[in-house]
Amino acid sequence: MQRDEKMKEKGSGLSRRTFLKVSGISLSVPVVLGHRTIKVAGAEVEVYGPGKVPIALTVNGAKHTAEVEPRVTLLEALRHELDLTGAKRVCDRATCGACTVIMDGKPVYSCSVLALEAQGKQITTAEGLLRGDRLHPVQQAFIDNDAQQCGFCTPGFVVACKVFLDKNPNPTPEEIQKGLGGNLCRCGTYVGVRAAVAQAANQYPNRKGGGNQSTSKGGR
């Protein structure tokens, strides 16, 4: 993860300029959490909203602030406030994986995380896997193996595959089937995705043993 974060810091110059164009976003504003503290059964509880509260998110290595209602999800904050639309809203209830992003090294369904909860975490989206214009090996493998058709599920799938390979650099076909069962594709790109994961695994830096792994039938 360390490496990746550094990589994103470097690549963030471009995105920063893009973000500045987005209205309602300012950079490096000190974080003021718009919450009150109330006592519930003797304990102090923070209460946010119901109006907009300022939030700070660290996305693809860059810090952003925005004002959102507490009910706004991380997915909506990324899409509406930061104009990072790689993560898609499809089921909006933690079933399809189209909204997958990485939060502190773990894949999460960003439709099911509140933007408020995501503060202070390192968030990476499909856009953040690029190094400048260079594609991440998983992204390149998706292209080589045609693991996308309409492409609407693709950014979420790419992110899920990336985290999966971080954890399982030498996956067996069974591990691929299980580990990537949380993303749904309507166009039917799973054969390409399996082959892409196998190809990317072969190129993965922390892979033990290395060498060629034969792709499953139905791969290209």
Partner: peptide, 14 residues
């Protein structure tokens, strides 16, 4: 492919 895998392809939804 590059636009799609990088999340940069803009759909009407986006």
């Amino acid at each position: 492919g590059p636009a799609k895998v990088s999340g940069k392809a803009k759909y009407t939804y986006d």
